[in-house]
Amino acid sequence: MNKKFILTIASACALLFAFAPAKAQDDLSKLMEEQTKAVKGEPVIATFKTTRIINAQSVETVKKRTLDFRIAHRFGPIGTNGGGKHTLYGFDASSDIRLAFEYGINEKLTVGLARCKSRETLQGLIKYRLLQQTTDGKVPLAITLYADAGLMAEKAPDTRYSNYAHRLNYCTQAIIARKFSSGLSLQVMPTWVHRNFVSYHDDENDLLSVGMGGRVKITKRSAIIFDYFQTFSNFRKSKVSYTYSKPTFAPPIGLGWEVETGGHVFAIMFSNSAGLMESDFIPNTTTKGNILEDMRFSFSISRNFPL
């Protein structure tokens, strides 16, 4: 009886021995799981590939100590008013060209200088990352604040710049974004544009609008991008105007495809806005009635130089 008991114990021990190595690795794996689980959430990166979507600013700022040199072209309308085959569907009639140097002072703060063809505007901009989304969901959103000031440096076409302050306009914006997955990012942008000078005397100097933008990745390095701004303006909404030449205003829409190759981000886009700055495309986008013919071809190149 005793012998049997001892034998059972002994064989049990032998069995234990046989399984010990396998068990040891399982224990180690379990311990590893415990230890790595405790790691807290990390910041969500690359909500957008670059600091712009199409017309809109994206939630991204320029990387620390990096200079982002940006070139953007907006051509003439494809169909209506100056489009068609005589301008090669707008290619001959570029409506705006923007050259910009934007520098990341640190991960959060970006400053930039730009020059636009439209009214020869010189622009200074500042962008600050207020809140960064985290992977553990504790911070579900990213928020970036944006502001710019533009100086229209063109020769006065009429009496409009009798006061120097007429040349200035401003844009202030909050960009609220969320990267839902590696493939989908969306953002909303409450925006306030102030222009010291407006062309129509019943137009508003202050305009409030809300923008929306997003990105859907189609491959690791390319994505479909889109943005849209809805402006709240009685002048734009009303059919009545004291100005007989008042055009029909339209919300700026953009749709494009962006691709990244090393340090470049290249985007090919269509938009119905003629301008490339917030204080231009938000108040000044108009339509001739057919949104497809209003569309303009556009491209942008962003090249990053680590300094």
Binding site: I45, A46, K63, K64, R65, T66, E107, S182, K220, R221, E260, G262, G263, N304, P306
Partner: peptide, 13 residues
């Protein structure tokens, strides 16, 4: 990495 863009590419691409 020495610059943040490399880190982004490393992670994303």
């Amino acid at each position: 990495f020495k610059d943040q863009l490399m880190k982004e590419h490393f992670n994303e691409n």
